[in-house]
C-alpha cells in the first residue's frame, strides 16, 4: 500500500511517502491510522488530532471509514490551503 503524507502530517512523521504492508486488522483508513500511531512518536504526534486530518484514497478526497486494500494509494494530510 502506497501511503503519502502532506502538510504538518508530513513534517511530524518526517517522510513524505512510504510503501506499507499493514496487518490484516487494517481494513479502512481509521484502522490504518490506529496502527500507524504505534509505529513511532512522529506518527503518534501526526495523528494525535484526528478531527484535523484529511484523507484521499486513490487521489480522491474520502471519509475516514473508506475501505482500503494493498492496491490503494492513501494520502493523509492537514487541511488543504490552496489559492
Amino acid at each position: 500500500m502506497q501511503v503519502l503524507y502532506f502538510g504538518w502530517v508530513k513534517s511530524r512523521i518526517g517522510i513524505s511517502k512510504e510503501t506499507l504492508s499493514p496487518p490484516l486488522e487494517v481494513t479502512n483508513v481509521v484502522t490504518l491510522i490506529d496502527w500507524l500511531k504505534g509505529q513511532g512518536d512522529g506518527y503518534a504526534a501526526a495523528f494525535n488530532d484526528a478531527a484535523s486530518l484529511r484523507v484521499a484514497v486513490n487521489q480522491e478526497v474520502a471519509p475516514l471509514d473508506t475501505v482500503i486494500s494493498d492496491d490503494d494509494e492513501v494520502a493523509i494530510f492537514s487541511p488543504m490551503t490552496g489559492g
Binding site: 502532506f6 502538510g7 484521499a56 478526497v61 494520502a75 494530510f77 492537514s78 487541511p79 488543504m80 490551503t81 490552496g82 489559492g83
Partner: peptide, 13 residues
C-alpha cells in the same frame, strides 16, 4: 473558483 480552490485544491503552505 477561487473560493473552492482554497479548500478543495491539494496545496499546503
Amino acid at each position: 473558483l477561487i473560493d473552492w480552490l482554497k479548500t478543495k485544491a491539494p496545496f499546503w503552505k
